[in-house]
Amino acid sequence: MTDSINTSNGRPWWKPVAFDWSRLELFVMRLSFAALAFWNVKWETRKFLDQPSPNGLAHFFDLTWLGKNPPGMMTQGFVIAFLFLYVVGLAPAVGLLPWAFYATLIGTLGNSQGAINHSWQMVTMMGLAQMFVYAWPRRGAGVFLWIRPDHERHRQAAWAALIVIAASYVVCGLVKVVNSDGMWLVRAPWLAVQLYKTHYSHFYDTLEMPPQWLQQITETLVQYPNLARLLFGGGLFIELVAFAILINRRWALIGGVAIIALHMSISKIMNLNFEAHMLAALIYLVNVPGIHKAFRRS
């Protein structure tokens, strides 16, 4: 269906539809995503006893009860039990609900401490988007579709997750261009200063300087601004063209590998770790069970 739909049935490449994922691929996606989603919630809320810089829902609600009563093993077991429903495809909207509740509220409380962490949002949005798709009524389908979604509904849920990944990276690149008045690439060599900052942040965390090779890379980027532009510009390019992961399986695989490589290099050079983003790309873009289909002729 899909790759053919997206490339050869007259539909333009910029109007893609959900890929032709098999039942097995979709099951592996749900299983892997459930594990990622649960792990992505920072259950240790004990230190969040106030919300000095409210963010999101914390503007309207006091969420510090989560810090005073951290979700224990019982609550986490309850969330896992419901995620199991999502994995097996039984009332998945309900299955995602307890996780969505805790993921949203704990993430909001954590980000209301005065320091915004950016590694939780994308996975939370991916889960919420899937829950939304599963809960969306279909005319004439009745409650059965909601309890036992068909293959098409599972496909649309996975597609929603892909759309969130694409949008997250595109907006990230777009914000760089807009916030810098279009000068991001020109100023990219200044990122070497950020690398110095990262090295010293690491030093002040642990009293250990980063390895010599990393310091050497930083020095090289300082000395050769165009090399810095090329390197950091490559990252910006991957973000801005992330919409391409929606075109077909092959582009999703290429984009997934590029996103993982981007995060691995950022992790090595800048000590900024986005494991959740890498895992999301691995699950939905690289899509190991369907990797061979990315190489077939459309």
């Binding site: 963010n55 914000v175 990219a188 950020q194 900052k197």
Partner: peptide, 21 residues
């Protein structure tokens, strides 16, 4: 930046200065 939404603005406004605490 309103969780769970974000425009992911990390390193969007690069300055010639950077500070650590």
């Amino acid at each position: 930046e309103q969780f769970p939404f974000s425009n992911f603005p990390m390193y969007s406004n690069i300055s010639e200065e950077a500070d650590v605490v």
